[in-house]
């Protein structure tokens, strides 16, 4: 219904994906298809998922993001989740969602830097 509210824009080699503030299940379901078809069509190097307006994160959304990131990785790209709100992070941690193996960034700008720098963020 409001599938259109997910926007996918290609900037240089990166796909900028913006989530609406209160995505329903069908919107979330459409995320995977949109991102993967855009990956195929544009041959992008990575995906930045902007969730800075999202106010709630449930397990379904978290799983979809994790799975999509894995699929994007299989297609040769990396996924960075940008701009999670503090309150969302608190609830996500409380219900045990840690978005394992997913890169995160404070905001879209930093995510763009990270995505184009090609530098491993983890110094360990």
């Amino acid at each position: 219904m409001n599938n259109e509210s997910i926007s996918v824009i290609k900037v240089r080699d990166i796909l900028m994906v913006t989530m609406p503030s209160d995505p329903d299940d069908s919107t979330i379901s459409s995320l995977q298809n949109k991102v993967l078809t855009a990956m195929e069509r544009t041959d992008a190097k990575g995906v930045i998922l902007d969730i800075s307006t999202v106010e709630t994160l449930d397990s379904f959304f978290a799983r979809t993001v994790s799975e999509t990131a894995q699929m994007v990785a299989l297609m040769g790209g990396r996924t960075i989740v940008a701009g999670m709100r503090p309150a969302v992070a608190v609830t996500a941690t409380q219900i045990g969602l840690t978005l394992k193996n997913i890169e995160t960034s404070l905001n879209v700008e930093r995510a763009l830097d990270a995505a184009t720098a090609e530098r491993p963020r983890d110094p360990r």
Partner: peptide
Amino acid sequence: ETVAAVRLLG
């Protein structure tokens, strides 16, 4: 948990 939450923020 705090560390995990801060990570989610990036």
